[in-house]
Amino acid sequence: MDDEAPENGKPMHITIPTALTLFRILLLPVMVLVFYAPFRGANIAAAAIFIAAAVTDWLDGWVARRYDMGSAFGAFLDPVADKLMVAVTLFLLVQDNHTPLMAVTSAVIVGREISISALREWMAGIGAHATVRVATIGKVKTVMQIVAIVVLLYQHDLESLRPFYLGETLLVIAAVLTIWSGLQYVRAAWPVLRRQR
């Protein structure tokens, strides 16, 4: 969350939060390559890359708030980076563990992210963005989602199914929290939605 939009043809200034967000996006193709790499420990490396991305997600927001570096561009780029990382990683995991439960759970999570992003963008367009702020349950959902994905990435290439079942269970819990937080967003936005019909 981060920098100044270009004005009068001046180049955009890249602040530390913006650089962290861009770094998170650059980690995405690296994680995909590592995920498919044939070397021993690729699963641990992929999980470590995802953890690094999650840490930069927290860090760029903290730096932006602490040092007053927030901007419209940062507000746009940060959630895009988050959703790209989660969606692409879930696609990798479903391809690697193509069970109906994994597919449905991942579809619920990705579908919710797309739907709520569209809702928030529309609300911002009509000047009612404050109505749909991130709720506590949304933050809990995010933490659960990150833990589940890390466990599933670690499980990749392991012979034991125990970590997979743990990761799958955590992902199902994350999907339930995803639906719950999504309904809270819709509930908060509903009065405005009714007026705009």
Rank of each mutant, 00 (worst) to 15 (best):
H156Q: 02
F76T: 01
G138F: 05
V176L: 13
F91P: 00
M31A: 13
V34D: 02
V134G: 09
L28M: 11
E113I: 12
H156Y: 04
V104Q: 02
T99A: 01
L158D: 09
L20H: 05
V172T: 06
A19K: 09
T89W: 09
T15V: 13
A81S: 11
R162E: 13
L26Y: 00
E4L: 02
E121F: 09
V55M: 14
W58I: 13
V86N: 00
L22N: 02
P17K: 04
T142M: 15
Y165R: 05
V110Q: 03
A46G: 12
R187E: 05
R133P: 02
D68N: 14
G74D: 00
S71A: 11
G127R: 06
I114Y: 11
T15H: 01
F35C: 02
R24A: 04
F91M: 15
A189R: 07
D57V: 03
G70F: 01
A128E: 11
M31S: 04
G182F: 12
L101W: 10
V151T: 05
D2I: 10
V94K: 02
V86I: 15
L92D: 12
D2F: 09
R133L: 03
T99G: 04
L152S: 11
M31K: 07
Y67G: 01
I49P: 02
E4W: 06
G111L: 03
W122M: 07
I179A: 10
L153P: 05
N97P: 01
R65Y: 11
R40V: 15
R133Q: 12
D60V: 10
H129Y: 15
A128I: 00
V108I: 15
V108D: 00
A75P: 01
H13Y: 10
L171E: 01
G111N: 05
D2M: 06
T105Q: 06
A42R: 14
Q95M: 14
F39V: 09
W58S: 04
A46I: 04
F91K: 00
R194F: 07
L119W: 12
K139T: 04
I116M: 10
F76I: 14
V32F: 05
R195Y: 10
T18Y: 13
I146F: 10
M12E: 10
F50Q: 03
V143C: 07
A87I: 08
A107T: 05
I114N: 02
F76M: 12
V134M: 12
R65S: 03
R120F: 14
A148M: 02
R197L: 11
F23C: 15
G127Y: 08
R187C: 09
R40P: 01
A81D: 06
S106G: 02
G41H: 13
K10W: 07
D2K: 13
L93V: 06
A37W: 15
T105Y: 03
M85R: 08
H98C: 03
P163C: 04
A47E: 01
G9L: 15
V110M: 11
M144F: 13
T169I: 03
A53P: 05
I149Q: 00
R162V: 10
A189Q: 06
D60R: 03
K141H: 14
L26R: 11
A128L: 10
T136G: 03
A124S: 14
T169L: 12
R65H: 06
L27G: 07
E113R: 08
D60K: 08
L33I: 14
F164K: 06
P100V: 11
D157W: 10
V176T: 00
M102R: 10
I173M: 06
Q155E: 07
V34C: 09
N8E: 15
P163V: 08
R187Y: 11
R187A: 13
A72M: 14
L93F: 02
